[in-house]
């Protein structure tokens, strides 16, 4: 494995019984193309695990291998204590899955969707009825039972989809971009629900593009073109030396007319990179540069900064830096 940047707090799967997911050198090839390249990860029970990466970087392929839909080219994966290669159906009986498309049947009512998903997981009779009732109560679906799924709003669709995928009491839930396209209130409610459920021992494997959601996860991994290039808690990732390159520090600069200020700031010789966040600039500069230096040099160029303060790296900064590093490495190899 080349250049895997990890937090170092990623113990070998010695205590396998406490692991929800354990992947070792998982690889999937499509012809000559390697979608996932020797990815290893461990997710402990009850964790909310955030899996990040750009589109097409192998996130979905990874989920499909772990859920037993896609055959594994090489490597091993154990999910809920079961070897995915040996018993994919056994794995599927113990996991739940919800995609960003909320795969409900639009022409079935809420009640019918619940009944169908319950039965497909082998629930029958009174058990089925109880589980359905429980899901209805937990998600407050009672008023919508006879409504066609097509007529539900995004947030309700998401609740129903989550309810359907959890009817069989899975111990691990895979959520593929669960908050794509829903409103902020529903988004907040979903995360509250996830933490509530994780408190009951359910493990969540969540992919997302939202950095604020990533910050909430108890454990994160970042995949870039098939390789996992970061793995750890949000704090551990922020403290990675790679995220704040040696000999640099970060400042946040408040200035009027932030766009033109950014253009000016980029003329500063000691500035490594800069980007706009809202109405301020996040700047990465050489280590020996101070607030006073920046203030003086900007004013000399006609920009009047209101405030300059030191900044710790955000997760986005971390992923951007890690991605640049990776790209540079690939480029130099080529």
């Amino acid at each position: 494995m080349t250049a895997l940047v990890t937090s170092g707090n990623n113990p070998a799967p010695a205590n396998a019984s406490n692991l929800a997911i354990c992947a070792q050198k998982l690889t999937r090839k499509f012809g000559d193309f390697t979608a996932v390249d020797q990815a290893s990860m461990t997710v402990e029970r009850g964790e909310v695990f955030g899996f990040l990466g750009p589109n097409g970087s192998g996130k979905t392929t990874m989920i499909k291998m772990l859920t037993g839909i896609l055959p594994i080219t090489s490597g091993d994966a154990t999910v809920a204590g079961i070897d995915v290669r040996k018993d994919p159906e056994g794995v599927r009986q113990r996991i739940g899955y919800m995609s960003q498309r909320f795969s409900l049947y639009d022409d079935l009512t809420v009640a019918e969707n619940l009944r169908f998903y319950g039965r497909i997981y082998g629930l029958r009779g009174t058990t089925l009825d109880e589980k359905i009732q429980q899901t209805i109560e937990r998600n407050a679906l009672q008023p919508y039972l006879d409504r066609l799924a097509a007529r539900l709003s995004g947030g309700w669709k998401q609740r129903l989809a989550l309810g359907c995928s959890m009817l069989h009491d899975p111990s691990i839930m895979f959520l593929d971009e669960p908050t794509a396209g829903i409103d902020p209130v529903a988004r907040r409610k979903l995360w509250d629900l996830l933490f509530d459920l994780s408190g009951h021992g359910i493990t969540f494997f969540v992919t997302t593009h939202y950095m604020d959601e990533a910050e909430r996860c108890s454990h994160l991994a970042y995949i870039y073109y098939g390789q996992i290039i970061a793995d750890g808690t949000p704090d551990q990732l922020r403290d990675l030396p790679e995220a704040s390159p040696a000999g640099t520090r970060r400042f946040e600069i408040d200035a009027p007319q932030v766009t033109s200020a950014l253009r000016t700031a980029r003329e500063l010789p000691y500035l490594k990179s800069a980007t706009i966040f809202g109405r301020s600039i996040h700047a990465l500069v050489e280590e020996n540069v101070t607030q006073q230096d920046i203030d003086r040099d900007l004013r000399a160029r006609g920009v009047q900064p209101q405030e300059i303060r030191p900044l710790t790296a955000t997760l986005e900064d971390v992923f951007v830096e890690l991605t640049y590093k990776k790209q540079a490495k690939e480029a130099s190899r080529a």
Binding site: T67, G68, I69, E89, R92, Q93, I95, Y97, S99, R101, S103, L104, Y105, D106, Y117, I120, Y121, G122, S165, F174
Partner: peptide, 14 residues
């Protein structure tokens, strides 16, 4: 096309 097959694939249906 609807995406529901993706969901069915992760269920134990044979």
């Amino acid at each position: 096309e609807r995406g529901t097959l993706e969901q069915l694939m992760v269920t134990p249906v044979r």
